[in-house]
C-alpha cells in the first residue's frame, strides 16, 4: 500500500501532496520537509529507493519535478516507479506535454487524475485508456455547465 505521494520542484516547492494514511498536519509538514531535503541532496545516478523510518521511499525526477512515494516494506519498488510513470503519462496525455506550470495552475485536475489511478493507496486502474476515459467523462459533465460571470472572465473575481 502506498502511504503518500509528494510532488515537489527542484527548488523544494511542494506541488502536490496526497496522503493515504491519516497523519496529523504537523507530522505531514515534518515528513515533507525531511524528505524534500533528503531527496534533493541525492545525486542523479543514485538508487531510486531508500529505506526511511519503517517504510521505503521510491522517487523519480521528471524534468523539474520530483515524484516521491512512500510504500510499505513488502511493496514492490520497481512497480511503484511504474505507478509514478503511469501517472506522468496520464498527466502528459491530458495536458499535452505536461510541464510543472500545468500542475501548478490545474492542481485540482492533477488530483482528479490521481484519484482515478489510485484509491486508498492501492492501484485502481492500470489501463491508461480507461483512466483517460473516466477523466473524459468527468469533463463531459462539465461542458454543459454555464460560463463564468463577467468579472471572473476579466480576472477580477
Amino acid at each position: 500500500m502506498m502511504l503518500f505521494m509528494l510532488l515537489f520542484s527542484r527548488q523544494g516547492k511542494l506541488r502536490l501532496q496526497k496522503w493515504y494514511m491519516a497523519y496529523p498536519d504537523k507530522t505531514k509538514k515534518k515528513i515533507t520537509r525531511e524528505l524534500v531535503t533528503t531527496i534533493l541532496a541525492r545525486k542523479p545516478k543514485m538508487c531510486s529507493f531508500l529505506e526511511w523510518k519503517d517504510c521505503k521511499i521510491v522517487y523519480k525526477r521528471y524534468a523539474s519535478l520530483y515524484f516521491c512515494c512512500a510504500i510499505e516494506q513488502n511493496d514492490n519498488e520497481l512497480l511503484t516507479l511504474e505507478i509514478i510513470h503511469r501517472y506522468v503519462e496520464l498527466l502528459d496525455k491530458y495536458f499535452g506535454s505536461v510541464c510543472e506550470l500545468d500542475i501548478i495552475f490545474n492542481f485540482e485536475k492533477a488530483y482528479f487524475i490521481l484519484d482515478e489511478l489510485l484509491i486508498g493507496g492501492e492501484i485502481q486502474e492500470t489501463s491508461k485508456k480507461n483512466v483517460l476515459k473516466a477523466i473524459a467523462s468527468q469533463d463531459l459533465l462539465q461542458e454543459d455547465e454555464t460560463p463564468q460571470s463577467f468579472f471572473d472572465d476579466h480576472g477580477l473575481g
Binding site: 506550470l101 462539465q142 461542458e143 480576472g155
Partner: peptide
C-alpha cells in the same frame, strides 16, 4: 502550457499568477 479543458477558473489562475509573481 496547453489550454485547459473543462472550465477554467480565471480568478483562480490570476490569483496563482499573483502568488508566483
Amino acid at each position: 502550457m496547453a489550454p485547459v479543458r473543462g472550465d477554467g477558473m480565471r480568478g483562480l489562475a490570476v490569483f496563482i499568477s499573483d502568488i508566483r509573481n
